[in-house]
Amino acid sequence: MSQTDYDAMSDAELKQYFLKHRGDKAAFQAYLDRINQRPRRIIASPDDPDFDEKVQTAIRQKLEAAKSGRSQQPPHDALEPTD
């Protein structure tokens, strides 16, 4: 059996691969390792007086980006990826 090269796959390809091959624990781990290496964007701290507004704005931006098919930020941030 040949070894699958997860590094050669894009994020989307790797995600699709492990969704189709749910028993492939190495593929799932490769995907988790990849997304955990990304920097996280902090939206607001819990004591921020504008916490609710900032979170709601980030959610709206994420939804608008998904509707238009583009991403305004890396997929791994404080609001977990939607892909």
Results as ranks from 00 to 15, higher is better:
68 S>G: 07
61 Q>P: 00
5 D>S: 13
32 L>A: 09
41 R>C: 02
72 Q>E: 15
16 Q>A: 15
15 K>T: 11
37 Q>R: 13
62 K>V: 03
12 A>E: 14
69 G>A: 03
17 Y>L: 04
76 H>S: 15
47 D>R: 10
14 L>Q: 02
39 P>S: 07
41 R>Y: 09
25 K>R: 12
69 G>N: 05
60 R>P: 01
66 A>M: 11
36 N>H: 08
17 Y>E: 05
83 D>C: 09
37 Q>P: 00
25 K>A: 10
37 Q>L: 04
7 D>P: 00
69 G>F: 04
47 D>I: 08
10 S>Q: 06
10 S>I: 05
18 F>C: 06
39 P>E: 10
9 M>I: 06
53 E>A: 15
4 T>A: 12
63 L>S: 02
36 N>S: 10
38 R>T: 01
77 D>V: 01
32 L>C: 11
28 F>K: 13
65 A>K: 00
64 E>L: 12
47 D>S: 13
67 K>G: 02
81 P>E: 14
29 Q>A: 12
44 A>V: 05
22 R>W: 13
8 A>K: 08
68 S>D: 12
64 E>Y: 06
63 L>K: 07
30 A>W: 01
5 D>N: 15
43 I>Q: 00
21 H>F: 12
29 Q>G: 00
66 A>R: 13
28 F>V: 03
65 A>R: 01
66 A>I: 10
82 T>Q: 14
30 A>K: 01
27 A>D: 02
24 D>K: 01
44 A>S: 14
63 L>D: 05
69 G>E: 04
30 A>S: 03
51 F>I: 05
72 Q>V: 09
37 Q>N: 09
83 D>E: 12
69 G>C: 04
65 A>W: 02
13 E>F: 04
19 L>N: 13
53 E>H: 14
61 Q>M: 12
16 Q>C: 13
80 E>D: 15
44 A>R: 03
45 S>F: 13
32 L>P: 00
40 R>F: 06
25 K>M: 07
26 A>L: 08
26 A>R: 11
29 Q>T: 10
29 Q>K: 15
43 I>S: 00
61 Q>T: 09
13 E>W: 01
82 T>P: 03
10 S>K: 04
61 Q>V: 08
76 H>M: 15
25 K>W: 07
57 T>F: 05
53 E>V: 09
61 Q>W: 05
65 A>C: 03
79 L>Y: 04
56 Q>C: 07
59 I>F: 06
6 Y>P: 02
1 M>V: 08
55 V>L: 14
10 S>F: 08
18 F>P: 00
50 D>Y: 06
25 K>Y: 06
15 K>M: 15
23 G>V: 06
26 A>E: 14
36 N>Q: 09
7 D>T: 07
45 S>E: 12
